[in-house]
Write a protein that binds this DNA or RNA. Sequence first.
DNA 1: AAAAATCACGAAATCGTTTGCGTTTTTAAA
DNA 2: TTTAAAAACGCAAACGATTTCGTGATTTTT
Lengths: 352, 352
Amino acid sequence: MHQIENRMNNSVTLKDIAKALNLSISTISKSLNDSYEISIDTKQKVLEYAQKHHYSPNRLAKGLKEGKSRSIGVVVCSLDNNVLAQMLDGIDTVSADNSYQIIIMQSKESQKQEAACIELLYSGGVDGILISPACETVDFSYLISLQKAGLPVVLFDRLSDQIVTHKVGADNFQGAYDATMHLIKKGYKNIAHLNTNTTLSIATERLNGYKQALADSKITYRPELLRSCDYSDTQKLNADLEAAIQYYMGLSDKPDAIFTATDQISTRCLTLLNKLGYHIPNDIALIGFTNTDLAEALNPALSTVHQPAFEIGQLAAKKLISLIERKNEDIEYETVMLETHIKARASTLGKE
Amino acid sequence: MHQIENRMNNSVTLKDIAKALNLSISTISKSLNDSYEISIDTKQKVLEYAQKHHYSPNRLAKGLKEGKSRSIGVVVCSLDNNVLAQMLDGIDTVSADNSYQIIIMQSKESQKQEAACIELLYSGGVDGILISPACETVDFSYLISLQKAGLPVVLFDRLSDQIVTHKVGADNFQGAYDATMHLIKKGYKNIAHLNTNTTLSIATERLNGYKQALADSKITYRPELLRSCDYSDTQKLNADLEAAIQYYMGLSDKPDAIFTATDQISTRCLTLLNKLGYHIPNDIALIGFTNTDLAEALNPALSTVHQPAFEIGQLAAKKLISLIERKNEDIEYETVMLETHIKARASTLGKE
DNA sequence: AAAAATCACGAAATCGTTTGCGTTTTTAAA
DNA sequence: TTTAAAAACGCAAACGATTTCGTGATTTTT
């Protein structure tokens, strides 16, 4: 009874094959693993039987025995996110190529939930963790303790100085610099910047790029042109954005262009500007970070800073797998920032 | 040596706690599972020690023992897909609430790769599988054999008659019907339909809804207004779409509106129409299935058929979990089709 | 005070693998 | 022919958890 009830599924096990072929379990195992200890004849028989009966090793048992599960945990703030979806695609592609499964979990931007995800992944025996930290997350001590316990961790997308490991992201500073420079070259002088209210690397780096471009162009940075929006939920974000736009437009020295820092902010800002009746780019120009395929089709076509999301995912996964597969050697951790690309479109057509 | 090397990670095990507290492994296990066999004092001590040392049960071991892994396999054609991302979000939300992990795999629309995914998930000991089949997939026998072997399977998004189980999707027929009716009410008479070249349920149902709406409105269905585009890759899709549009516009009796069947087709069609210099909706109106948040911001704002993707994901996950958790009872399988919603915007403003 | 019941805990089997080592059989060398 | 060396295979422990059953110790009942 019990031994049948508790079977994971009806799949054949080594024991089944052993019984059927009148051999021992270890012989079966070794045959399937092509051990030198087993004769060719026996191997042949075993392999044949195994294929005929669709034997596939139980990953749980194998994982338990070997101390690894050939699975990678991925923690992101949300699945429903353009850029992240592309990164996940990249991660999955590389993982699949190396026969790793990925287990994706959502932090929903909550530090607490993120910790729960990591905890679950860890106890689930993942071989490593890929993480794009929640914007709430300031304390990396938990992750660090796991890392010290031997769990390979790689940061992607959103990076942090608080933990020493491989990190893969976009060159946000340069991207922001280029975007701002693009505006300046197009003749815009009063450039506003809409960012998040977080301390995320992507936020600060983009802000710094913006500032640097201004400085290099001898344009004085006007703090009143920087607005930060609540990133905790969509409702608040929209409200903050609308307030920011109204604020900008009410300024005596109005901005003539906006550089937006994230996907969400960029597209919503465009929507809101349209809704509030402002003409882009005549009333105000707009360029922003976003990876949407629809930039071209927007009203007007939106100039964007495009990041190589798929490639970031790929590289991050490669880095993690390399970490997993040579745990012993001591490695030099590196931070890779992939180039972004400016796609100039109608929303930054230029003055006059 | 070996017993340390092979440790999954440095996390504490029951054995560790047993040794530290000078108790047996079974006592520890029972304490943590709040067994009546253990005294309150002992439980207290064990619990305290466990918490202090961040004990968390090894999921592999637990899964192996119990014959289940508290994980759900999800197979989709792609991660980088708006609608699917929303569905995955829904799936994940419900799964997390019920402490299941989800393992997502991509079929990339390949039947072969899909089979490999399922195989991997099965041997990985998932407790059930959620699948939106690849468009190549015509043969469900493999999935059916696993199902017969006791693996709960639920179809979502793309449904099929070939397998008997719970199925959750959008009411595609009604959605298409409503979209076509919307066009008709707005005064359009020559309504073209752009669909995929697949035999997917979502494709045929939407086609049927389109036809029914025409029939109910006494408009004769003109087969020459139906075009199917290659869905295997983006390149071909774009080429086919452009050809289709040129074809439509070259017709002596040109269509005055297009109803597009999928997210990809809808947004690309809009982009292409703009690119080719046609004015929407003056030259031709457009309505299509898509869930993009950007419909409002497109040029022009795109009328859409919106499907409750998140809810579909949620419901599918609920159905699967119910299947997993009462395997024994015999269930009546049902197919649920959630309502879609027409969002009328500028791209179907109406004639004159 | 003796018998019975209850309580608190430990030993051991089990899930499906892998693997070091021992054992038997065959083959090669002395 | 005797001995040494491969070759081919089986035994058993181990991974970490759960669970059945058995066994002393304590408490309750008679």
